[in-house]
């Protein structure tokens, strides 16, 4: 079994490193922390944006409490958090029941990233400067490691919100399969075994 080495490292906005931990499996405490910290921070940032007439980010109203409760007890879903300062800095929900679409791995199982989000204070769409960088990459790295653990060879798929397309295409190195009718026209991205290996090597594998 592979694993992401602990601690994991985030960066302050000045580039200095900060130790964090990757938590596999989410529970009531994460829901409480989301409600106590993320929710008010997000609402404050959104009110500011709305007052200045800015367009709100696409994931502006994600409700993690509802998302997590919906899949409680299901083996096909797995939650992850990056924690620092005793608070989740990013959350991710994986679906382990999906299959690949890229032709050379079509029909083979993959880890599907159903939701991934960084805390409001780590999102450049909401605040500047952000508190910690690198949360999204660490979560995607965790999805790849889970895929390897499940014998899916690093295959990962996801539907990207428009503001995140560049991150998945350029930073992670995923294949862009274009807009998907069943995902309201959002673009589907997939990581092959070779692309997963390249990303792991790039991020200290």
């Amino acid at each position: 079994m592979t694993s992401v080495p602990q601690p994991v490292w985030l960066r302050h906005s000045d580039g200095s490193p900060v130790a964090a931990s990757l938590v596999r499996g989410l529970n009531e405490q994460h829901i409480e922390l989301w409600r106590a910290h993320w929710y008010p921070a997000r609402e404050a940032a959104l009110s500011k944006q709305a007052a200045s007439g800015q367009k709100l980010p696409e994931h502006a109203r994600w409700d993690w409490e509802r998302k997590l409760r919906k899949v409680t007890g299901l083996l096909g879903f797995a939650g992850y958090a990056i924690e620092c300062d005793g608070i989740p800095q990013g959350l991710m929900l994986l679906d382990l029941n999906q299959t690949a679409k890229v032709s050379k791995q079509k029909g083979k199982p993959l880890v599907y990233v159903q939701y991934v989000e960084v805390a409001p204070w780590n999102s450049e769409l909401l605040v500047k400067p952000i508190r910690y960088r690198g949360v999204g990459s660490l979560l995607i790295r965790a999805a790849i490691e889970r895929s390897i653990d499940e014998e899916f060879h690093g295959r990962v798929g996801l539907v990207a919100l428009p503001q995140a397309e560049g991150f998945y295409r350029n930073t992670i190195g995923m294949t862009d399969l274009g807009p998907q009718l069943e995902a309201q026209g959002l673009r589907y991205f997939e990581l092959t075994e070779a692309q997963a290996k390249a990303f792991v090597a790039k991020t200290g594998g």
Partner: peptide
């Protein structure tokens, strides 16, 4: 293991 997840779902 995969079959069990799907069956449960």
């Amino acid at each position: 293991r995969q079959a069990l997840r799907l069956y449960q779902a």
